[in-house]
Structure formats: C-alpha cells, structure tokens
Design a protein around this nucleic acid. Structure first.
Lengths: 169, 169
DNA sequence: GAGCGCATGTAAGCTGTTACATGATTCT
DNA sequence: AGAATCATGTAACAGCTTACATGCGCTC
C-alpha cells in the first residue's frame, strides 16, 4: 500500500512520468524514506493502472509509457494521508546489532559500534547533499529534516556508547 | 537472516527457551528493534534446528519444545555481529507521510502532523516502561537508549514542524 | 559497429502478515 | 463447566530482492 502512495505522491507532485523516471526519483529523493527498485515499481504501476489510480498518458519510443495520476488516484492518496494511522514497524539491522552488543567482548563491541558510527556518518553525508539542485518546491523538506535529525541523533548515540565502552577497557 | 540472529541472540543471552517463550521475549524486549510474530518464529526455529544452529534440549507437556543454541549457532551469531555491514533499509510510514505533507492544505497537514506526533508520544511512553523489571542484565540497554533518543528527536521534529505550519495559517 | 546508457520487463525465491485451526492446562 | 491463557502449528497471500533477459538509441 505504501509503495502505491509513494508513487502516487511523486506523480501528483512532479507531474506525469514513466516507470523509469519514477524509479530514478525514488533513488534521488525518496530513498531515505521508502525504498523500491524498478523490479517492484513496474509491476505495481500496471496494477495501479488497472485499478484506475493512474492512467497511461502517452507511449513513447522503446515502449516508454508516461503515467498520469487520475482524480481517483488523487482522492485515494489524500484519504490515505488524512486517515492512515502510521504503523511503527521497525526492522533495523543497526538497532538489532546494538541490542546484541553486550554479547561481545568490550573490544569487539567497540569495533561493531565504530562500524555503526561510520554507517550513520555516511548516511548523514548523503542526506546533507539533498535536496538535489533541480527541485524547485519544498516537497520532501519535512521528511529530510526528520532524516537529518534522526541521523545526527544516531551519531551522538554512537559516540556516547563508544565513550562508555572505551572507559571499560 | 536478521530474524535468525535475533533468535540466536535471545537464546544465547537468556538461555534455553521454547518458541512460545521466544515470541514473548520478542514482544517484551525486542519489538522496538525487530518485529516477528509466532507464525514466523515457529517455522524459523525448525529451519534453524535442521541447520544445526540450535537443538531441541527437551520436550515438555503439550508438545512444548525447549531449544538451546549450539556452538555452531554461537559462532554464526558472533561472526554476523562482527562482519555484517548493517543495511540501512528504511520503510517508514511516518517518514513517507511527512514527505508527502506539502501536498495537503496547511490545515490538513497540521492534522496529519498531530497524529504523527501522537504516535511518537505513544512510542515514547512504551519505551519509557522498559526494561521490564525482571531483566537482570543490561542486555538491550544500548538499543533502548537509541530508541529513546530517536523517538525524542521525532517528537521535537514534529513540534518544530507544527510551529512552522501554524505560523502559516 | 561497438559500447554505453535508456527503458522495460519476468521469474524464482525469500520474508513477513493475516486468518485459520487445534488442543492442553489453569483459574474461577 | 466455562473462560482465559498456554502452546503450537498451517496456508494463503502480500511485499520485497536478486538474477536474468531484451532491445532501442545515441555517441565515438
């Protein structure tokens, strides 16, 4: 369901686009919020078309199909935003490794935490390059702020835990 | 893979347990880190047994089977902790709704943000009740700290965004 | 004409959710 | 006796990943 909403959102915000365009948009602007590759996007678009949420506006070279969001699609998207109670389903490798950390010797735990710290750092440097220069609207700004804040919190947490573990050596 | 590691971790940290026990443990101590219900856990335990990572220690009343982690299982768990580069796969309804927020009228966006704020608040109050009194070790402490910090960051973010949106009315 | 990026797809397999099904034990 | 909780499972489906497959159009 959420994948649908993400695609509808992109189509409403940025206008008609092909599956390929949407996959690129996902990579560039949405990947810190929701992830999906083209192998998931293409079949989903076909289903959304047959459900009347989007329609094929035109077909170009190489079978390129441009999809537009329909009125029905817009209605569904807005209803979902208004009414859908967000699920807090967390499945994070990082949090799991953090959870299991006390099973390791202090020295090894430090190595693991350092790797986790690096992964937060990488993520932060990716997010700091957003939004890409061509985006004119402030679409996605709120989510970006959240991503940045959470990542910085993660970094601070890693530093704090590292300090504690190092003091045990 | 991560589900396996979570189960191995529980078995190593808390000792032998049945599928039922593990499902309860998941709910009580791990659910802010990784989620799984009994319908996923039971079949996974069978596979882990046939892969030699765990073994049936004894069988009690009502077909209750107590599993123990094997040496091989411990090895695999520790190797995973040491070597596994954590994937940062985010699929968050909340972040997605935040991303799409600018598609709504300001007043509606405020409603959505207030709901998001409440969900962070609920989560915080759940986490603040952890760890359950019976847990003696500091197992899971690092992950809990991370969860608390990230949730507080989420709350602060929601308040900041709400202030901004309200000033636009 | 060789190679690269564009563009679209399928298929197999793994992971996770929801609904269904069953029966034993304990408590009131 | 009836209800709640313990305890284990199966089956169908939905969601996601990885690998494979194909062919166009542009540039060098």
């Amino acid at each position: 369901m959420s994948l649908r909403m993400a695609l509808l959102g992109l189509l409403e915000a940025k206008g008609p686009a092909s599956g390929y365009d949407l996959a690129k948009s996902f990579e560039r602007s949405l990947n810190h919020v929701w992830q999906a590759g083209h192998t998931q996007i293409y079949p989903e678009l076909v289903k959304m078309d047959s459900d009347g949420l989007i329609a094929v506006q035109s077909e170009g070279a190489r079978g390129r199909k441009i999809y537009v969001i329909t009125e029905d699609g817009k209605g569904r998207l807005h209803a979902w935003l208004r009414d859908h109670e967000p699920a807090i389903t967390i499945r994070s490798d990082i949090a799991l490794q953090a959870f299991l950390l006390p099973l390791l010797e202090t020295a090894q735990a430090i190595d693991v935490l350092e790797r986790i710290r690096r992964s937060f750092e990488e993520r932060l440097s990716v997010l700091e390059c957003f939004p890409d220069p061509e985006s004119k609207s402030d679409f996605g700004r709120f989510a970006l702020k959240l991503g940045l804040a959470q990542t910085r919190t993660g970094l601070a947490w890693a530093d704090e835990c590292l300090a504690e573990l190092r003091s045990r050596l």
